[in-house]
Amino acid sequence: MSETNKEAVIRLRGVSFTYDELPEGISEAEARAKGAPMAVDALDLDIYDGECVAVLGHNGSGKSTFAKLCNGILVPDYGDILVYGINTREEDRLLELRQKVGMVFQNPDNQIVATVVEEDVAFGPENLGFPPEEIRARVDSALKAVRMYKYRGHEPHKLSGGQKQRVAIAGILAMKPECILFDESTAMLDPKGRRDIMRIIRKMHDEMKKTVVYITHYMEEAALADRVIVMENGKVISDGTPVEVFSDIDRIRAVGLDVPEATELGALLREEGMALPDILTTEDCIEALANTLTVKGA
């Protein structure tokens, strides 16, 4: 499903990438003939301005490689990626690209560089050479957006995983990117930390009007997106609204993923003759069942 009235801000055309070392100048056909495993395989994909997209897939499906390609951390072996009009092959425009597209990683411990929270958040804007007042303003507003302002003088290593991840997000926000990529940024957090990060992701989309792409293998998190892309063997095998994607339970299961339990329960009960609408979240499920069930004698 594509929002044709919107501009595609990330465009992948025939993108293939392998982690194998390829001989210089080898053609794509030759590389394939040699059996080079393609982590991302002839991918055509558009991410549109203002979308909130979840990318699902099991470990090794190519979803993290996809994210790293979008940010120019990896460069395609074949095909091209245009990010806000910048081809990721243009090395001299990488800095410009990274200001447009920020990335938050999985491990909160690997993303903190300073010994005080606010200095960590200032790291990006300082490197961009902004005047001190501008840096101060950006740091404060970024820390407030992730509700970490009162921790601005703290030492990052004493924060919880979820709090560290919020600091990492503030560091990206302080660069004022158009788009933020989250590469399994909730995977190492506890349930509360995960909920906090998901709330911030939605806020960045809904209120701050950023384009947001997050990679996850938690189905309940994917259900919160406007668009879900499922990857398998470096290709997109399903792309649509959460309802469209999760309605095909067998297909999701076949690639080693789960559907949300609420969706699965809905499907089982429809087989038992219940007339239920589409169900994605806990709240959907309670409401649908409460509307459908009649209690006798009540």
Binding site: E261, A262, L265, T282, C285, I286, L289, A290, V295
Partner: peptide, 15 residues
């Protein structure tokens, strides 16, 4: 689990 939350919610609604 999500189903546990669903059933707690149903109970709250009087089912």
């Amino acid at each position: 689990p999500q189903v546990t939350k669903v059933f707690l919610g149903l109970r709250e609604k009087g089912i």
